[in-house]
Computed example of a mutant assay.
Amino acid sequence: MGDPGVRSYRTVFISDIHLGTKGCQAELLLDFIRHIECETLYLVGDIVDGWKLRSGWHWPQAHNDVVQKILRMARKGVKVIYVPGNHDEGVRDFVGVHFGGVIVARDAIHETADGKRFLVVHGDEFDGVVQHARWLAFVGDYAYRVLIAANTLFNRVRRRLGFGYWSFSAFLKTRVKNALQFVENFEAAVADEARRRGVDGVICGHIHKAEMRDIDGIAYINDGDWVESCSALVEHSDGRLEILEWAKLRSWSAIDHKGRRPEPFLEPLAEPAAA
């Protein structure tokens, strides 16, 4: 509590970390975890990338540190709920099991402090490619990892020049018509499921696009990812929900590849604006 940058939240939602891949922004995530306190932490799928680890092992110390930090949070009394995704689908075989204080669930219903109920689900169930053309999903995943690797090299140059993080794949999602249509179809399908379940909204991940909007009376919230946007969804003590883009809130350029941070990086963050 001595660090003026530490913030307290009722609930934190993170997804699509993709530990085990070179594109994972583990250092930024570690910094985020160091600067938050919460009562409940939801891991909303694709935490470990089993697809990538089956084809080649990549597990630097920072990835191990993320796992250890989360387990330490659970040991200290934080309620950690793990909702697996398609990249860590093997964990779905352990629904209902507790691992070191981490609860594995197929999905969950979260009630905010102001009484709203949200379906928490990764979202791959509503992705037609993942469900009906699995081979194409693997091909797309490989192409995506190549794009992220190129983007990582590009951002190393930007960082040395003093510029902030920029995501090429996120840029494409907002410019390419087919990508936009896929995102819109996904969002509508997830919102329909929340409506069918009789809840106020849905909190999901999967498509690596942080978003918070209304879809025909259903609150659609995507907490983003820790490959591109480096974002999380947080619930304040009064139930207010907010998306934090950590790479923008913190001095991304001040973090080197070993996760070291100079002193200015620890300056307190500005208080979030009122809703």
Rank of each mutant, 00 (worst) to 15 (best):
D88H: 02
L180C: 11
I243P: 00
I33R: 01
R75L: 10
F154H: 12
V95M: 03
G50F: 07
W135M: 10
E193T: 09
E245I: 14
F163L: 15
Y165I: 00
K173D: 09
F182E: 10
D65L: 03
I36L: 02
G123V: 06
E187Q: 10
S253Q: 14
L28C: 06
L43R: 00
D31I: 02
V190C: 11
A273D: 14
L153H: 12
I36M: 07
F171V: 10
Y42W: 10
A105Y: 04
D223S: 12
Q68I: 08
R260I: 07
R159E: 03
P262H: 12
G50S: 11
G115N: 07
V67I: 15
A210R: 05
D200P: 00
R158H: 03
C230A: 14
Q181A: 14
H208R: 15
Q61V: 04
V97L: 05
Q68E: 14
E263V: 12
G20F: 02
A150Q: 09
L266A: 13
F94W: 14
H18A: 07
G123D: 02
N222W: 04
S167R: 04
Y165W: 15
A62R: 15
F32N: 01
I221V: 15
D16I: 12
R195Q: 12
R134S: 11
C38I: 05
Y144S: 10
V48R: 02
G90S: 15
F13I: 06
F171N: 11
L41R: 04
L71V: 02
R160C: 08
L71D: 01
A188W: 03
V199K: 11
G164Q: 05
I207K: 07
G90Q: 14
E211R: 11
I203S: 13
V97C: 09
A143H: 13
G45C: 10
V190A: 12
D49P: 00
F182H: 13
V130F: 01
I81A: 10
R145P: 04
L43C: 05
T112Q: 13
R197F: 06
T21G: 00
D65P: 04
I243Y: 05
A247M: 05
V120H: 03
P262D: 07
Y220N: 05
A194L: 03
E245H: 15
D200N: 13
L241W: 08
I81L: 12
I70D: 00
A254Y: 06
K116N: 07
F13R: 02
R195Y: 11
D124S: 08
T112F: 12
L172D: 12
W57D: 01
I221D: 04
R92I: 02
D93F: 08
W57C: 05
V146I: 15
I221Y: 06
V234D: 01
V67L: 15
F32H: 03
A113V: 00
P268G: 10
S253A: 15
G2M: 14
D31Q: 09
R158P: 04
V6M: 13
L28T: 01
A26F: 01
E193S: 09
N86V: 04
